[in-house]
Amino acid sequence: MNTATYILALCLSMSSMGTVAQAGSGKGQEPHSKAFALPDHEPIGKPGDVASITRTVEISIKETASGYMLFEPDAIHIEKGSVVRFAISNLGALDHEFFLGSFDEIAEHKQWMREHPDMQHDDPNAVSIASGQSDELVWQFSAMTNLEFVCLLPGHREAGMWGVIMVHDHLAPKSKG
């Protein structure tokens, strides 16, 4: 075997080893499949215990006559260590979802949803809410970070269905008046 062929064969075998190693790491699998539990994943917290809830955030899902879809509120500040109950009401005519994740996870999940638009969720960091219905998600925020919540049904995020959560080690006091 000549040197060029040997080097090519060596490179190909090394690149396939990386693919095999990646296959067991959770990468390349469904991006939302318990991604928050992977060791190298950005910390977004974990499912919360209902008995430990420290705060409830009410979120409304709305659709406008012009086709805009939104969460109200779309920006939420949460204190690190809080266990939050998200009480989500779908006031719109369409079914929606509330998916909580890191910005990278949301980007991966968005691509996955484009390839699998009929996929149903069964993850602790996501709920599907039918039109006119309500549901809740309980989450413990254990790290200071910024997260996104989003509806990734095809076209919904693009129509405005996304928001941010900022997790801090302190919250500013509420102003009076």
Rank of each mutant, 00 (worst) to 15 (best):
M1I: 13
T3E: 10
A4Y: 05
T5H: 11
Y6K: 13
I7T: 11
L8W: 02
L8K: 03
A9W: 07
C11D: 01
L12M: 05
S13C: 08
M14A: 11
S15R: 03
S15H: 03
S16W: 05
V20W: 08
V20A: 07
Q22V: 12
G24I: 12
G24W: 15
K27A: 05
K27H: 02
K27F: 03
E30L: 10
K34R: 14
A35Y: 10
F36M: 14
A37H: 07
L38S: 12
G45V: 03
K46H: 15
K46D: 09
P47R: 08
G48K: 01
V50W: 00
A51N: 10
T56K: 03
E58G: 04
A65I: 11
S66G: 05
S66R: 09
S66E: 06
Y68S: 14
M69K: 11
M69L: 11
M69P: 00
D74L: 09
A75K: 07
A75N: 08
G81F: 04
G81S: 03
S82L: 02
S82G: 04
V84W: 05
G92N: 00
A93H: 13
A93P: 11
D95C: 11
D95E: 15
E97L: 13
F99W: 11
F99P: 07
L100E: 14
G101L: 10
F103A: 15
D104F: 08
D104Q: 12
A107E: 15
E108M: 15
H109S: 15
H109K: 06
K110M: 07
K110G: 04
Q111L: 10
W112M: 09
R114A: 14
D118Y: 03
Q120C: 03
G132F: 03
L137S: 02
V138C: 11
F141I: 01
F141Y: 05
N146R: 06
L147R: 13
E148P: 13
R157D: 12
E158Q: 12
M161A: 15
I165N: 08
H168Y: 14
D169C: 00
D169R: 00
L171E: 03
A172Q: 06
P173R: 02
K176L: 07
K176Y: 00
